[in-house]
């Protein structure tokens, strides 16, 4: 799952998948603006066939938080 998440982030935010790690956070990533945040959320929803509610959308502000929220979603 982690590689898949990295690949989605890489595609949407125009990053190198290999450079994505726990230090990848919204505030310090230039291409991760509010528009691309929505794009990223929807791309993750499409990729993993899930739907996030607004509080989850707002909580996913970094690669780590995405893994955490998505993990909860997928594995309960």
């Amino acid at each position: 799952m982690e590689d898949q998440v990295k690949q989605v982030i890489a595609d949407v935010l125009a990053l190198d998948a290999k450079a994505i790690d726990e230090f990848t956070v919204k505030d310090s990533t230039a291409s991760w603006d509010s528009l691309n945040h929505i794009n990223l959320i929807v791309a993750l929803e499409q990729e993993f066939q899930v739907s996030f509610d607004v509080s989850e959308i707002e909580s996913m502000q970094s690669y780590s938080e995405i893994l955490e929220t998505l993990g909860r979603k997928l594995h309960g």
Binding site: V8, D11, V12, N39, A43, Q46, E47
Partner: peptide
């Protein structure tokens, strides 16, 4: 045909 693919092609 998801968003990530469209993002990639567009870029």
């Amino acid at each position: 045909r998801g968003l990530r693919q469209i993002s990639f092609i567009c870029r």
